[in-house]
Design a protein around this nucleic acid. Structure first.
Lengths: 254, 254
DNA sequence: ATCTATTTGTACGTATGTATT
DNA sequence: AAATACATACGTACAAATAGA
């Protein structure tokens, strides 16, 4: 799979640092460099590309910003091929949606189909250790929230439950998406509980879903896992729309 | 919604240009700058951040690489807030998956659920002009491919059909995902038609699906659209697995 | 703990390119 | 066509960080 360069057609013309960055990417792929492999030193690149130091440095910054290399000073230092981290991919993708009018409803629409699919795919595939970890997470919010702040924390924790599950997905794309959505919700949701005080009954239902889900996953009952997660998502979706939750507009940090 | 910064916790420490880039991002959000708005000039930033010219320039390159600013020379030139383009978001996300072992099967697993969902959501919502455009696209591959090359081109064209549909999604996240997946498939699929020569019957079935789909979309029949797209995807999924298609490893260009 | 070698990071002066008026 | 205002690129000198002796 080729590394994706970052150049569009109609746009005027690329600056030198950008072209150098592209050249380095191509070179990395061509040479089959793996993560951790060292790139040529600054002076070597200056010679190889016949560019000034500043230009080379700007090119390296571009690659660094994209998460593809990491640079260290000192002896044995230099730039190294680096695996793009999930955090950075999240952040970079998040910046795209900063300019789109993405709503919480949009995210939930996708969660409603993808989360059950993930749950079904994981039934019977999880280690006991991991299932215990899920239960620990549920145990971290043992009783209904007493305040808006507390409820917010519980909301974040329960999103963490889903992000945890996402790490186990065999399908890396599905896993990333669910992680992205939960993080987006955790980062960006601002409550506007204008008419909806914390509701013990709703809390209990959400909690029950998660408990039953873990049981279904343990039992290897894919169908039940799918069903439970689907109900859970449908409930959550309704809840979010009732609360008139809003997205906060900001750039995301890795 | 805040702009996502790009800093992780465990990692050593950020270089100055990266920190300056983050500071600029925060400043943009704080000031509520919109796309097209001008950032301070190089000399102004040098003063404002008390940094050297090179440092500021590297910071701007970082923001440029992330697609957040665009820079122009000349009078009235400078750096401007820029909406992250879909192309760039695709490329940046693609680089993440370069290091994950994402398979074609993974992508199809998601397409099987998301494409029907999109189709259903668009039934009865599309303009006649757009529906004609879809039909034009179908007309661009009027007969079965005679060679592997031709078949490859037709495959790309039929992926374009899906990308076209994606542009109409009201749900921006869903639209982006489908666009991302079709582009990933178009860019990265390498055929290995070891035992599968171009097959006229399969081609005819794929074509029929698209024709019927457009009809259902015209009629506003969401259920039929969902069904047809679901069948189409299931067929395509089988086809891809039969052809033992492989992902090519490379970085993606915008 | 200190020194030294290595490699990136910062600074700044100058010259060139480019688009607007 | 010329002047202007801006970014772009280069080259050199020096500063900071880190690993190892």
């Amino acid at each position: 799979m080729p590394l994706v360069t970052t150049q569009s057609k109609d746009e005027p013309r690329l600056s030198r640092p950008v072209r150098v960055a592209e050249a380095i990417k191509d070179w990395v792929v061509e040479k089959g460099l793996k993560k951790g492999d060292r790139l040529p030193s600054e002076p070597e690149m200056i010679e190889q590309f016949a560019m000034a130091k500043g230009t080379i440095r700007e090119a390296m910054r571009i690659l660094e910003a994209q998460g593809l290399v990491r640079t260290r000073t000192g002896p044995g230092g230099g730039s190294f091929v680096h695996e793009v981290s999930k955090q950075r991919a999240r952040a970079l993708l998040g910046n795209y949606f900063y300019f789109q009018d993405l709503t919480i409803a949009d995210i939930y629409e996708l969660r409603c189909t993808l989360e059950p699919q993930l749950a079904a795919s994981l039934a019977g595939k999880l280690s006991d250790e991991f299932l215990d970890q899920l239960e620990d997470n549920i145990a971290s919010y043992p009783k209904p929230a007493q305040s808006a702040d507390e409820e917010r924390e519980q909301h974040i924790a329960s999103l963490r439950f889903h992000a945890l599950l996402a790490t186990q997905s065999k399908n890396k794309l599905l896993g990333f998406l669910i992680d992205f959505m939960t993080n987006m919700l955790a980062d960006l949701t601002v409550y506007r509980r204008l008419y909806n005080p914390p509701n013990a009954e709703l809390w209990q239902r959400g909690r029950d879903y998660q408990v039953h889900l873990v049981q279904a996953l343990r039992d290897g009952d894919a169908k039940a896992a799918h069903q439970i997660m689907g109900d859970h998502m449908a409930t959550a979706q309704t809840l979010m729309s009732l609360q008139e939750a809003e997205m906060q507009k900001r750039f995301i940090s890795e």
